[in-house]
Amino acid sequence: MIETRNLHMDYRSGHVTKHVLKGVDFTIKPRDRIGLLGRNGAGKSTLIRLIGGVEMPTKGKVIRRMTCSWPLGFSGGFQGSLTGYDNARFISRIYDKNYSEMKEFVEEFTELGSNLKMPVKIYSSGMRARLAFALSLAIEFECYLIDEVIMVGDKSFQDKCKEEFFEKRPDRALLLASHSLETVQQYCNRAIVLKDGRATTYEDVSEAVAVYKKL
């Protein structure tokens, strides 16, 4: 279970303070597939970063009782100057996983071939997404935090994600920030709509989608 309690997040730049989150409470239970909806700048990425522990909330707290992936998104998690393999080795070390098993899985899942010997900074966002998903799947987290990034993948990648997440690992939890209503409706059993720094949870995904469309 992952629980957020009264999360507040402010960003300060000079004299301007932006209150991004103003008290967010919700719970992610095992097997939950939660879609996170909201307009640009509503705080979806911020919320995911707080849950992932990348940034610290101004007030409130995140209680993690499941292992939880780092936020899988367009940036972060990799050292750009290192190759795909070197990044995999780094991640296998810090998460205490066997490197050769991880390497095998990454090669098979990403289908990146010799690109894995190139520095990650020259990867396209689709290639990065493949690598990030492969690594996090190899670690076997109980909860995955996904920030938009599934949608940059091509058809074969999306099919693979679907297979790995929904067919092979139905017991995992998922928090998926997305503007693709189709993806959210297809994958999620609950949804959260972020608006004005507050979160509303909907047990019915189509209700959440209707609310989001009116924003």
Binding site: G53, W70, S75, G76, F78, Q79, I91, Y95
Partner: peptide, 10 residues
């Protein structure tokens, strides 16, 4: 090094 701070244990 902030890209690596995505991993909580770092």
């Amino acid at each position: 090094n902030s890209a690596l701070l995505y991993h909580r244990q770092v």
